[in-house]
Design a protein around this nucleic acid. Structure first.
Lengths: 220, 220
DNA sequence: CATACTTCTGACCGTGGGGTCAGAAAAAAG
DNA sequence: CTTTTTTCTGACCCCACGGTCAGAAGTATG
């Protein structure tokens, strides 16, 4: 009976279907990156793909799925990069540096993804009755792994005493802001800015102040 | 001739007009704070004010002016607080601490303003032909005064060498993120989180690592 | 009470959004 | 060359939005 369609949509996809989905997602990312979520309508995405609006609704259940897929793809790529670049570091300190460099590097290499990620936090999606609705946007979890990393550093005695949750937010927000600033002035050297962040938070977190003398947490 | 209306709208305003404008702006801030810009429609704002939508368009030229006014009001209040709390500090170091405390304190005292400011950066307003259009949102200038402060600290020999523009973005972004995190979990202690930021950036920026020796006022 | 002005309402308009659908066009299968 | 299935289009629906407008309601001032 009708199981064919539902089966296919869950198991095997046509070449065309897969290609179109990929194309549409890519176009969606581009359009969002260029115009922001607010003006990223289905028609816009469709016309960038050189296709009718109905095509999107044919391959996706709705706008929500498009954005979900796009975000999922981006986060997957980002996660892969993290997994690759955060391995094999002798101490937490250098792992944190690698974390910052990985995030900054990813955005440098995928500038189209920046705005998508950034606005995803804010973007509501219009929950409840009508329209969109795709993602609660668990911004609380966004820096959770970073907080865990910081706690590991504290446990290892590499980092001083602080609220890991707060500092994860701070570091994450700092990186975001620097990247956002780079988007507005693309001529600036993002890599160099990343190094500034590395130095800054290294000095800020390391247990023994980066000098020769004794430790002792200063203020507070 | 028709100069009466235009004169009055520029010079003297009725008590009622002034009151309504204030009320509408307040309601707009509340609605934006509660639902975000996306869902902050004129009807929503109007019905919160217990009034018909037309009233807003009667007292304001359009939605744009409402939001402009709201943002102006918020920035004015924020600026006033800065002017008050950033005065009379012996060194740049403590001024920076005061800066962080002022920003955090303002948001703690005016939680409704947080989201309005935060989303204002992102929010497009839908420029060009149709609809809104109110504010280019000069995010580049947002941390300019902070950058100047940092540079002053460097000139005074209090701060180490770094890119003041980048670090202003970083500090600003860090504060923003911590505040945003507090909005999501209002039970956390924002003041304490602010102190964490003060300590963090003090350690990160001060030229001589903050040890016990020598003069140099520590925190605050 | 009448007049004139301010303030407000409710119906209305145009636009643009997401989503549906019948049927054209294109591919695959026979 | 048919038949069948996949893919696509264009017209259409409904709704929310911002904005306009004629006229009601209110409020002074004669």
């Amino acid at each position: 009976m009708g199981s064919e369609k539902s089966l296919r949509s869950q198991k095997e996809r046509t070449f065309i279907e897969e290609a179109r989905r990929a194309q549409i997602v890519t176009c969606a990312i581009e359009v969002i990156s260029e115009f922001g979520y607010r003006k990223a309508s289905l028609v816009r995405i469709a016309e960038r793909a050189g296709v009718s609006k109905g095509v999107i609704l044919y391959h996706f259940t709705g706008k929500g799925e498009v954005i979900e897929t796009a975000l999922g793809q981006i986060y997957a790529a980002l996660g892969a990069r993290f997994e690759q670049e955060l391995a094999d570091h002798p101490d937490v300190r250098s792992t944190l540096a690698a974390y910052i460099r990985a995030l900054v590097g990813y955005m440098r290499d995928n500038p189209t993804h920046v705005r998508v990620i950034a606005e995803a936090a804010t973007y509501d999606g219009g929950s409840a009755e009508a329209g969109d609705s795709f993602d609660p946007g668990d911004a609380g979890a966004r820096w959770r792994s970073l907080a865990d990393l910081l706690r590991a550093g504290q446990a290892a005695g590499e980092f001083r005493d602080f609220d890991a949750r707060v500092l994860a937010q701070a570091i994450g927000g700092a990186i975001d802001a620097v990247i956002a600033g780079w988007l507005e002035e693309p001529d600036t050297d993002l890599t160099e800015a990343g190094e500034q962040l590395v130095t800054t938070f290294d000095r800020a977190l390391v247990a023994v102040p980066p000098t020769t003398d004794s430790g002792s947490t200063p203020c507070q």
